[in-house]
């Protein structure tokens, strides 16, 4: 009965020419998604434009070779084994430097997260040394350790050490204290609280520290190789520049881009595997 009368009133209201304003939709936007087709199209048009600029001689071809030239140079590097020679030297330095810096940084970060003494001394120390561009201390590292591998590895290690320490103690501080109290309320011993509560709880923060420090390591290996090395992607890019071999140079840059991309993908996989609980 009630429904019918409401409908009747409504019908009457419309019939009598009463104002009927639809509520306009205003909730759109602010929710961008990604479209694979657009992504391919964007990258494709960039390459086409680049090749066009080269083919039509809009720019000096010595200064900017076309994408096809660069791809050819890259292919040549691959089949002659040049790429492997330089890449393996760079990867070796990144691997050792990053591993040393990361282990040390996580250890210091953990100490800062657990002990008053380490926190009191460590935080001002890290704050003072973190902002120094590590490439600026490479000359003194060369004087101390020689021009060989050690000074390059040490530069990368130092560059990785500080951000890892900061990421780790921040991550430890962010583990909810109620989980620690819970563990204490069950009389869980200190070392097990660290191993079973603090470290797994800090893992997301430590892994994002990995991401930042990996890109720092990539930056530093190239810079270090430009200063004094005959092997390594950085040295190769530098030599190519000195010889005006811009196609070689850009091929080296492309390798660095792919290396960065691969490291990022690897870390994303690691995060997905280790942090499935989030």
């Amino acid at each position: 009965m009630a429904t019918t009368s409401v409908q009747a009133t409504l019908a009457a209201a419309t019939r009598d020419g009463l104002l009927r304003t639809p509520i306009p939709f205003r909730g759109g936007g602010f929710a961008p998604s990604s479209n694979a087709l657009l992504a391919v199209a964007g990258l494709g048009s960039f390459l086409v434009l680049w090749e066009l600029a080269f083919a039509m001689r809009w720019v000096n071809p010595v200064l900017l070779p076309g994408p096809i030239e660069v791809a050819q140079a890259l292919w040549h590097l691959l089949i002659t084994g040049e790429l492997e020679k330089h890449l393996s030297a760079s990867l070796y330095r990144i691997g050792i430097g990053w591993a040393l810096g990361a282990v040390g940084g996580v250890a210091l970060g953990l100490a800062i997260g657990l002990s008053t003494a380490a926190r009191s001394i460590g935080i001002p120390g890290v704050s003072a040394l973190f902002p120094i561009p590590k490439i600026a201390i490479m000359p003194i590292l060369i004087l101390w350790l020689g021009i060989g591998e050690a000074s390059k590895v040490a530069t990368i290690g130092l560059g990785v050490f500080f951000p890892m320490a900061v990421a780790t103690f921040g991550a430890i501080d962010n583990v909810p204290r109620n989980l620690v109290r819970m563990a204490q309320s069950f009389n869980v011993p200190f070392a097990q609280v660290v191993r079973k509560v603090l470290l797994p709880g800090a893992l997301p923060g430590i892994l994002s520290g990995f991401r930042i420090s990996a890109s720092i390591a990539l930056l530093l290996v190239v810079a270090a190789e430009m200063i004094g090395a005959d092997r390594g992607i950085g040295a190769f890019v530098m030599q190519a520049g000195n010889l005006m071999q811009t196609d070689q140079l850009l091929a080296g840059v492309a390798v660095l881009s792919m290396l960065g991309l691969l490291i990022g993908i690897g870390l994303s996989r690691l995060e997905r595997a280790l942090l499935a609980w989030r």
């Binding site: 989980l179 109290r181 819970m182 563990a183 069950f186 869980v188 509560v197 609980w277 989030r278």
Partner: peptide
């Protein structure tokens, strides 16, 4: 204790959260 916010370890299953109180 039984806590207001449950205080469960989010990376452990239900079984392992209960086992946490016994492992040591």
């Amino acid at each position: 204790f039984v806590f207001q916010d449950f205080a469960l370890l989010p990376w452990r299953s239900v079984r392992d959260n209960v086992a946490f109180a016994l492992e040591h």
